[in-house]
Design a protein around this nucleic acid. Structure first.
Lengths: 241, 241
DNA sequence: CCTTGCCAACTGGTCCAACCAGTTGCTACC
DNA sequence: GGTAGCAACTGGTTGGACCAGTTGGCAAGG
């Protein structure tokens, strides 16, 4: 049994973050004082302080010396890294995330096609081959119904190269934010991404377009691929706000 | 004179973060022990711990009990919120950020046109009027050469409404990440955004398209607007990676 | 009565000192 | 020479104390 020692400050952080993101405490509310929290969680005040520092770093609370620590409106002050902390059971959140991914992916494909270096193209070809092999193996082993995590990993590595090939650090960081913690939802991600992962034809077209420096074709292929997943996520409904 | 008291933990955090983001310490390197750092910065170990917690939260370091704290490759592990912490003098970073913004803005415009509620449309009309008024005032006061921060604020509020109208929390958070700390660079942002801020015709077309639920026209208008700024940021060069 | 000023009781910020709990590497024993 | 174990690191946690801002009520003055 993995003991999975979790630092007490992390316990406090997770609890407070969950209270804020779930709306149990509302923006403008004050959170209890550090001394009160340290009693409530039965930990030392220093641990509480470390947790509060992290909340502050995440843009969830505003701390003021002498005054109360207030909860901020994370929809206004939070950064993209909060996305993976939102309640994963909310399919609206998932759709929102994949819409953003679709938007960025199309641009990434186009810019990768326009800017990829020879080195990038070589990496892309290698990853594409690995992905194709994984797909073959997956279809042969699991059948076409349920692609495994291995295929998803190979697909991610493919996009990894594309993102790097854009030479744009902002795309890179946004991509990181969208992926962080996705390991926790890999199981469900595979379901949503099924059609996208198994569309070999369009994937090949995407790779070919990038290798051929055809930005428009690359963008179109990326759009087609991501559309599969958006369709899988209740296409007719707008995501919850 | 504003004393601008900065908590010591923030001083340590800023120093360590700068060392990492600037590359003075490389991924895989170990950072000095907490006790060493507390001596070096002449602060208490708890202050160092709070700083390290924030570094950990930002995805810049990996802490392991008993072992050394190692620097991570922030280009792989960092989130979008790091973007505004990157050296602002690097024009490549600015171009990367505005490319991402352009990508998202086009999608935001299209989805806002498709999904805006009557309430959203009313807000949009109000903000559009306020922006137009600010532009008139700006041109009359400062001349067409240098739009002031007030115009930029009005423009941001306009986009604020559009982002909310998409009903997509991911767009909202990404938008937040792109704006955070931009106040620090408002002066330079105004220069880059000049042509975009003063293109009244296209701005009006964008608002009209959203009010008219014309997603394609909204996307096109947004693309035209953001293209102005990308052109201002050395259009012929790819951003530095 | 109302205003004004001060002080006490909060809040967070910082420090010291100690100990617990993992990791690492050298050393001394087998 | 191999290995068990001890020491000397590392981070994790605790307690207590004090400094430094903010807040609100209470009392003295108008």
């Amino acid at each position: 049994m993995p003991d999975a020692r979790v630092p007490v400050s992390t316990v406090v952080y997770d609890a407070l973050r969950a209270d804020i993101l779930s709306g149990r405490v509302r923006p403008g509310d004050g959170i209890p004082s550090e001394r009160t929290l340290s009693e409530r969680f039965e930990v030392n005040r220093h641990a509480v302080r470390e947790a509060v520092k992290r909340l502050q770093q995440a843009g969830l609370v505003q701390v003021s010396h002498g005054g109360a620590t207030r909860v901020l409106d994370w929809r206004r002050t939070g950064g993209l890294e909060l996305l993976v902390d939102l309640p994963p059971e909310d399919v609206g959140v998932a759709r929102a995330a994949y819409e953003l991914r679709a938007c960025i992916a199309a641009d990434v494909a186009a810019r990768a096609a326009a800017r990829a270096t020879d080195e990038d193209r070589a990496s892309l070809a290698a990853r594409a081959a690995a992905f194709a092999a994984a797909r073959e193996h997956c279809v042969a082993t699991d059948g076409p119904v349920s692609p495994g995590p291995a295929l998803l990993d190979a697909y991610r590595e493919l996009w990894d190269v594309l993102v790097d090939a854009t030479g744009n650090i902002a795309y890179r960081l946004a991509y990181n934010s969208l992926l962080h913690g996705e390991d926790a939802v890999t199981a469900v991600a595979v379901i949503y991404l099924r059609d996208e992962l198994l569309d070999a034809e369009t994937t090949d077209a995407l790779v070919a377009a990038v290798l051929d420096s055809d930005a428009d074709a690359a963008r179109a292929a990326a759009a087609t691929l991501t559309a599969h997943t958006l369709t899988a996520l209740s296409p007719t409904e707008a995501p919850s706000r």
